[in-house]
């Protein structure tokens, strides 16, 4: 090969392949991207929830983007328990202060971070949530304490519109 000199034809071949590759890529991309969330799915990005009827120690579950969101009004005991845990003991260290800005209200995605099941309320070894699928235990702050899940249950973006209404998303 080394004695062979690059000629005009080699250049034309390379240029043709390059243009062809770009063309194929540009054609395939719409076929791939059409599978991503469409405009109507993205449009359902936020939801407002009335929380006036939720008493301490109760959880309501609402659907946001097809996923359950737990809104729990925690008892004093639960808040104390969540805030007294040392960060070193946690698999995914996050302080409860960061997870629940208003300590009484815990708002999080009710989706186990292992394989996406909905954990059960008030179950498990840490008085929080327990996932029945593969046995992950979460504490009263929704943090992973035991089991295969890699991270804490996710906190979605939310804000208090007023004292009785939470806007998720």
């Amino acid at each position: 090969m080394s004695e062979k000199k690059t000629n005009r034809r080699d250049f034309l071949f390379t240029a043709t392949y390059a243009v062809g590759a770009v063309g194929v890529g540009a054609t395939i991309w719409p076929m791939i991207d059409q599978m991503n969330p469409d405009a109507s799915v993205k449009a359902l990005a936020s939801t407002e929830v009335d929380i006036s009827a939720v008493n301490p120690g109760k959880t309501i579950t609402v659907l946001w983007r097809g996923k359950p969101v737990f809104i729990r009004r925690r008892t004093q005991d639960e808040i104390v328990e969540a805030r007294s845990v040392k960060l070193e003991e946690l698999k995914h260290p996050e302080s409860d202060e960061d997870r629940a800005k208003n300590p009484e209200w815990l708002v999080m995605l009710g989706v186990c971070t292992h394989l996406g099941c909905v954990p059960l309320d008030q179950k498990g070894d840490y008085n929080g949530w327990f996932c029945p699928c593969h046995g992950s235990h979460y504490d009263t702050s929704g943090r992973i304490r035991k089991g295969p899940a890699p991270t804490n249950m996710e906190i979605p973006k939310y804000e208090f519109v007023n004292t009785n209404t939470i806007k998720i998303g």
Partner: peptide, 27 residues
């Protein structure tokens, strides 16, 4: 849900792949 979530185990791009498979934020 469980099977598609297997792909979320892939580092970095896992979540994106799962959203792509679902065509949304859940099955």
């Amino acid at each position: 849900t469980v099977i598609t979530n297997l792909f979320s185990a892939i580092p970095l791009v896992g979540e994106g792949i799962v959203t792509w498979l679902w065509g949304g934020y859940s099955v």
